[in-house]
């Protein structure tokens, strides 16, 4: 019971800090980092002070649960802000709950979708445009692509959702 209480309290504090930082500074990354550090450092400190004698395995298990819930929170927050499906739902809502599918496809079509994302990558320096050709310029994104491709090959034995 003590463990659950500690997890819930720390997660609530972390989420409130994230929301406050986001609202006051507008910097999402700072909010995510602060909430992660509060969970990572705060929970072991709280548990070490309330569990007697200190049980390292209890702290590790509790920290595992708390970090998993932080990850779930991060994913939900990210989905609200950047998921294509959520954006389409909000677009339909802004049109009064129904919209002509051709009108929706004027805003959400593959050409526009890819070019907006490519522009964002270029603005962020992850892609360079040289002599009319686009070049990848980000080791981090390359690693992320390798990671998800490896998982896709391991679980689905294919490289892309659109592989025939």
């Amino acid at each position: 019971m003590t463990i659950f209480m500690a997890i819930v309290i720390i997660l609530i504090i972390a989420a409130i800090c994230d929301l406050l930082i986001a609202r006051l500074s507008g910097k999402r990354l700072l909010g995510y980092m602060a909430s992660f550090l509060i969970t990572l450092i705060g929970l072991p400190l709280v548990l070490a002070s309330v569990i007697s004698p200190v049980d390292i395995y209890a702290i590790v298990v509790a920290l595992g649960i708390a970090l998993m819930w932080w990850f779930i929170y991060l994913n939900l927050a990210q989905a609200v802000e950047s998921s294509l499906r959520i954006r389409m739902l909000r677009e339909i809502d802004a049109e009064g709950g129904s919209v002509d599918i051709d009108k929706l496809k004027l805003i959400y079509n593959d050409d526009r979708l890819i070019r907006i994302r490519l522009k964002r990558l270029e603005d962020g320096g992850a892609v360079r445009l040289k002599d009319g050709r686009h070049h990848l310029n980000s080791g981090k994104l390359e690693k992320a692509a390798h990671f998800f491709t490896a998982l896709k090959r391991l679980l689905l034995n294919r490289r892309s959702q659109f592989d025939v």
């Binding site: 998993m68 779930i72 964002r120 992850a126 390359e142 998800f148 892309s160």
Partner: peptide
């Protein structure tokens, strides 16, 4: 909790992210 996290990762595995698909094409 682990099942929830794993399913969230699976969403990223099953559905290609447009940004990562661009990165893969550039690679």
């Amino acid at each position: 909790s682990f099942v929830a996290v794993y399913c969230l990762i699976l969403i990223g595995v099953v559905h290609d992210s447009p940004t990562l698909a661009i990165v893969k094409a550039l690679m």
